[in-house]
Amino acid sequence: MFLKILEITPTSVLTFRKVPMSHKIINTYNFIPPTTLSGFLYRLLKLGRGEELPTPKKFKSEKPEINEYYILETKKETIGIFSLGAYPVDLKSSVTFKSFRMGYQHLGKGHSLADGLDIFDPSYENVINLITQKIRDGQLKDDNLGKFQEEFEKSRYNKYYKRGVFKAVMQGYGVPTFQAFKKEERRQPLDWHFCFAERFYGFLISEDPNLLNMFDDVENYGYKIGKEGFAYISKVHKTSELVEANGEFVSSTIIPTTSTGIRLKKISEVESVYYFDLKTQKLARDMFALNGTLAEGGFYKAILDGLEISVPKVTVNLLKGV
């Protein structure tokens, strides 16, 4: 097993949103999660080679495929490389600070995102059927059907308008015009947390050292990372070999708390983190003990440029899908 260490220097404060997400508090991890590092590095590889970047996607209506995501572990040229995330030298060299921000929330009039109406999310046919039924029952005038079709087109197929019509007709009112159905915006106060660290050390592992040498070319490249902030690769360390060992160690990476085969003696902190499950080809979530955790069990170790790296076997196995 081989290890590549990349020194990542942020030029600003960073935000990596914690799961589960909250609307009111934008919370951040104090390290770069494996999935974020994986996407960031793949983008840098593409930038370095002058390859195309992704085109914007329509969201909500169009679900992205896994192969469209920037995941090193799934790409042809980088298959066999696993991202373990990036961590500050120790927990003390990274802090979060809280900042107050004003976000915006869009609302259809009388229909907030939280009013539960989105559960219905009626299709176009549903609305048409409801209006026809009400006309048949004599509760609505005949011209309402045409009016809906006309106004829906005017709204450029706005789903909030569609929901609004559904609600109004259900309540026994006529079809409102799109003009009458004004959109409301309201300010949404947020507590935004930022992570602050001078540098992170990113870890990549692979059985094949040549694969890892590919990352020698991304030195000094940078791009946006996480939800907020910019970082660049300030140094790429030489690929080094990891030696298998057994016993007590202080982990340099996250450790799944649910795994057997390792004894967690002193957990520094726990977080719920997403990782890419190779077996199911889906993003999965698990509880992890953060770096700096004292554990006992099988691990890989390396000493490089004065840095002592210990990677628990259970983390590697989880990410490898073994």
């Binding site: 030029t11 600003s12 914007p56 996607k57 329509k58 869009h106 450029r156 909030y160 308008y161 959109k183």
Partner: peptide, 20 residues
């Protein structure tokens, strides 16, 4: 773009401010 019906979507920024 969240409230424009069919054309909902997002464009990633290409200018990043940092430091401060």
């Amino acid at each position: 773009m969240t409230t424009v019906g069919e054309e909902e979507g997002s464009i990633a920024s290409r200018v990043f401010q940092a430091g401060g």
